[in-house]
Design a protein around this nucleic acid. Structure first.
Lengths: 116, 116
DNA sequence: TTTTTAGTTAACCATCTACTTGACTAATAG
DNA sequence: CTATTAGTCAAGTAGATGGTTAACTAAAAA
């Protein structure tokens, strides 16, 4: 019954990462925390646009922020990335196991030369 | 200069995975190829809706298909998943390296009791 | 105190997304 | 041949997304 919650979380994390601007923001925050202004500086778009991207990242838990005085500092929250990576890893291992089973089956075939 | 193409590819792969239906389709195809009808069967939505999802998955390279007679069979194309997993992995290792540097710095501080 | 700086809010807009239903094509089963 | 089955195409729709500009708040610098 936790499935649907994880599903929704994955929806939002993948959705958040489906945008080059937001991925660049994440990549920047990997190198350490930063204020809104610094985060926005490399982009051609308006400040409010960047803030919306940051809100998306924060609302799905990829990122967190705190405000001190008039400057809000964002930092990476690695749990979100881990969730996405874990889902992808599960699919890959599932796929690899399938290939293993298939390989074993073919090997057995080759040896026995017969099927039930 | 290949950056933008990879970026766009990542956009589409993450976008494709940002939907629970499509993730379930991928998870199904991990266990082996299947026809459209079989893929659609577990879902409450209409056939054309599922086909649109399959088209999204195919257009970003996560999946491929071939038609034999009147049945089209889909199969997983693992390269797309690997691309996404790789991006996430890069961020994670970047993050870990940052923590390592930070940890080393703090450890040196603790030993020397002095900076610069 | 005035001015600048950092960030926030609101309203608006074009496009994209995830469906729907209905009409249709073409392969195969009876 | 005809009826069924598997899949496809097209048009329409409600709501989400990614951006804009303009007006505003509050902290800090001069």
């Amino acid at each position: 019954m936790v499935k649907h919650m994880v599903d929704h979380q994955l929806d939002r994390v993948f959705q958040a990462l489906a945008d080059a601007t937001r991925r660049e923001l994440v990549a920047r925050l990997v190198t350490g925390p930063a204020a809104v202004k610094e985060l926005a500086q490399p982009f051609a778009m308006s400040l409010p646009a960047v803030m919306q991207h940051l809100r998306v990242l924060e609302s799905c838990g990829l990122v967190a922020s705190e405000k001190a005085g008039r400057v809000r500092t964002y930092r990476l929250e690695p749990a979100g990335l881990r969730l996405a990576e874990q889902w992808l890893g599960e699919q890959r291992t599932g796929w690899e196991h399938r290939l293993d089973r298939l390989g074993g089956f073919l090997a057995a075939d080759r040896q026995e030369g017969t099927t039930s």
